[in-house]
């Protein structure tokens, strides 16, 4: 069967219930080959469940997942490299031993697995720990081992649940480099994260799910443009309050900051009116940037809470939203999407 669309991983209308809780409610999206794909959603949105279904660890109640037209359950296991959200290593087993064991399961020869594992350990600057037991390693180092376990067999598809969480900047950089190298080798990478700047930095496409449903999706640039709104980054020398903005109609501060503030501008308002208003008041403008809303803002707008906040699944028809407005951010709901109940009031 020939298709005009080059797609590799296709999720079609997945549903999954756990007892009375609906975890997935018709999830559909597709991932192009060789793409870095951001899989976004709040805690409890259904990301882990979706990944487990893709890997055939869980079975969907209905719907299908295909990889190059073939149900994923039938694809060779070595197709996937998986970094689960709940990290897990054999606590009392040597680091190198467990990597070789996993390589063995993924059909690498034990010798080759050991060679690659040593290379990776070297690269991640933890070669000294090869013989140590996993429980003796720090959390961050365990996470690096976990990452190696997922990529050791050079799988065509990487599924990574929060690969960067809990790492210091140096290790994030190390991991990011490895991440991009896998992409360079042609791997398709699907990863979830709460760090939205990672999405903008690494992802070509995203999908955002909330309570088991796809809220939006597509190439990152299109998603950011899709709101039809623009944001302004404004920095004025010696004025972080920007109190005078109250006089400018159709403009409000969505994110105040010491270095710059982010402003939301209604579609009818020409952003230049803001710049003009600043200059009219004799302000020294050090930064003025017209941009699309960030993924984080879109996330908050669509989901009604910040990416890091907890959603407690309590059966169908769960109450919306997290525990109130994020303190100090003054985040407001977007222009009447109706998708969320909105949190907090504009500052």
């Amino acid at each position: 069967m020939s298709s005009l669309f080059v797609v590799s991983l296709v999720l079609d209308n997945l549903t999954k219930h756990f007892g009375t809780v609906t975890a997935l409610d018709g999830i559909s999206f597709s991932v192009k080959p060789g793409e870095v794909f951001g899989f976004l959603g709040g805690n409890g949105a259904g990301k882990t469940t979706t990944m487990r279904i893709v890997l055939d660890i869980l079975r969907a109640d209905s719907g299908s997942v295909t990889w190059n037209g073939q149900p994923t359950a039938e694809a060779p296991r070595a197709t996937w490299g998986y970094l689960p959200e709940e990290r897990g290593l054999y606590p009392r087993m040597g680091v190198l031993d467990q990597l070789v064991f996993l390589g063995d399961l993924y059909k690498l020869s034990r010798k080759e697995a050991a060679r690659r594992a040593k290379d990776w350990l070297e690269r991640f600057q933890i070669a000294d720990y090869a013989k140590r037991r996993a429980e003796e390693l720090s959390k961050g180092n365990q996470q690096k081992i976990q990452f190696i376990a997922a990529v050791l067999h050079e799988p065509p598809v990487l599924l990574m649940d929060e690969p960067f969480v809990g790492l210091d900047p140096v290790n994030v950089a190390l991991l990011k480099e490895a991440f991009l190298e896998m992409k360079g080798r042609g791997a398709t990478i699907v990863f979830s994260t709460h760090q939205m700047e990672m999405v903008e930095e690494l992802c070509e496409s995203v999908v955002l799910i909330d309570r088991g449903k796809v809220v939006l999706g597509g190439p990152v640039r299109e998603v950011r443009r899709s709101t039809g709104r623009q944001v302004i980054r404004l920095a004025i020398d010696g004025d972080t309050e920007l109190a005078w903005l109250a006089d400018v109609p159709g403009v409000r501060v969505v994110r105040p900051g010491q270095d710059y503030a982010e402003l939301d501008v209604e579609q009818s308002v020409d952003p230049e009116t803001v710049l003009r208003a600043a200059l009219d008041r004799g302000k020294r403008v050090t930064q003025f940037l017209i941009d699309d809303p960030s993924i984080e803002e879109i996330f908050i707008e669509k989901v009604g809470r910040k990416p890091t906040e907890e959603l407690h699944l309590v059966g169908t028809g769960a109450a919306s939203g997290g525990p109130g407005a994020p303190a100090g951010s003054g985040a407001g709901a977007g222009a009447g999407t109706g998708a969320s109940t909105g949190t907090g009031a504009p500052a």
């Binding site: 487990r52 660890i57 993924y106």
Partner: peptide, 16 residues
């Protein structure tokens, strides 16, 4: 039970 409590199970189930 140890594989389960150490959560290594999920990694292994991805492979076998």
């Amino acid at each position: 039970a140890e594989e389960k409590s150490s959560r290594v199970m999920e990694v292994i189930l991805g492979a076998a």
